[in-house]
Amino acid sequence: MKSIADIMAIRDAMRSHVGLRDNADAEKEIHIVVGMGTCGLNAGARTVFNTLVDAIEERGLAGVRVTRTGCLGNCEDEPVVEVHVPEKDVATYKNVDAAKALEILNNIQA
C-alpha cells in the first residue's frame, strides 16, 4: 500500500517520461536537433544525443526538446547539432562531442 507521499513521488518521477508526449507548446519550445544519418552516427552522434537527453533530465530543463534528424548535408562536419530557439536564427554547431554538447546546453541556459 502506498502513502500520499509515495503517489507524489511517483508523479514527480514519471512526469518527464510522459511529458515527452506533450507537444501542445511545441512552438514555444527550444528544439535541439542532432544529425543522425550514417555520417553522424559514425562520427559519434549517438553519444552527443544521449549526453544531451541525460543532461536535460538531470538539470530539469523544461521546454527543451531533443530530436534526431538525418544527414544535414555537411558530412565532414558531423556530428552536427542545430539549436532552434523560437523567433531567433538557427544556430548550427559542428564536430560536436559530449563536452561540446554540455557547453551548448550551458549557452541555452544562459
Binding site: I4, I7, I10, R11, M14, R15, H17, V18, G19
Partner: peptide, 14 residues
C-alpha cells in the same frame, strides 16, 4: 497506473 499518476492522476482524490 504510473503514467496516469504522472498526468496528475489521483491528485483530485488526494
Amino acid at each position: 497506473i504510473d503514467e496516469y499518476i504522472a498526468r496528475d492522476g489521483y491528485q483530485a482524490l488526494i
